[in-house]
């Protein structure tokens, strides 16, 4: 196996963080015209646009670093399934409102810790993207926490259903705290975030909100892994990029 250069590692790293934003942002955008209330639809679209905005900045930085004449669009629209290294948690289907809220909550709690750490990166551009994104994800965490508390501490039906959402999605949270080779390489230079070190804080934030929501923290069983390290996705992922990339694949270079 060839040695990973620092440049390639940085491209991979920026793109991989961007993948998280793009894929969860796309999932949230699927609620457009389908949310249970106008207020909730706009809230989710605001979150989606924040997350896709983060992806754009990261893809642009990846493209500039790569220096092969590519743009953010190449990263979003012209890569294949295995090139995407988003966390599996971001790609699983929206499910019902409770599933969507639980996913957003688990991911936002992580994003807040992650971007806070990234803001201290020795890489100035990543640090700037981190600092800007913190404000956005703090609101996502607030919005999803308030919903989670109301669903968990709501009716017996909402409690049981959202506990089930949590139990199902929990298997995907192990991957949040795994390191890729690129991350390990960049961590030595103070560029990448040590995500293994975020776990204790994340556990604390999550269990505080779940306690308020009268929900039970699921046990850490066998984690679902594969996308972040190797681009091995769930069976749902292909449908996302089929939908998302259709225009650029069908009409290459199309602009509007």
């Amino acid at each position: 196996m060839t040695e990973l250069s620092k440049k390639d590692a940085l491209v991979q790293y920026a793109a991989q963080i961007g993948d998280n934003g793009l894929i969860i942002g796309h999932r949230m955008s699927e609620w457009c015209f389908r949310a249970p209330a106008l207020e909730m639809e706009i809230a989710l679209m605001n979150c989606a646009l924040d997350l896709i905005g983060q992806a754009r900045e990261l893809y642009t930085y990846a493209a500039v670093t790569q220096d092969e004449g590519k743009s953010e669009d190449d990263f979003a629209y012209l890569r294949d399934e295995q090139d995407f290294r988003n966390l599996l948690l971001t790609e699983v289907p929206n499910g019902d409102w409770g599933d969507t809220i639980v996913r957003l909550f688990l991911m936002s709690a992580y994003n807040k810790l992650f971007y806070t750490a990234l803001a201290n990166s020795k890489d100035a551009q990543l640090a700037a993207i981190g600092a800007k994104s913190i404000k956005e994800v703090i609101y996502h965490q607030r919005f999803s926490s308030e919903w989670l508390i109301r669903l968990g501490d709501g009716t017996p039906e909402s409690h049981d259903r959202v506990q089930k959402s949590l139990d199902t999605l929990w298997a995907y949270t192990g991957e949040l705290f795994t390191m890729t080779d690129a991350e390990t390489l960049l961590l030595a230079d103070g560029i990448a975030v040590d995500v293994t070190a975020l776990k204790a804080d994340w556990d604390q934030v999550v269990s505080d909100v779940l306690t308020q929501a009268t929900l039970t923290v699921p046990a850490d069983l066998w984690p679902q892994l594969g996308s972040k390290a190797e681009g091995r996705h769930t069976e749902h992922f292909g449908f996302i990029i089929t939908d998302m990339q259709f225009m650029q694949r069908r009409y290459p270079g199309c602009e509007w």
Partner: peptide
């Protein structure tokens, strides 16, 4: 105006609908 279950949720809905 917004529809919301309580004051906190109304505040968030107002933020999302009217200050974007």
């Amino acid at each position: 105006s917004v529809h919301a279950s309580d004051a906190e949720m109304a505040m968030e809905a107002a933020r999302d609908v009217y200050t974007r």
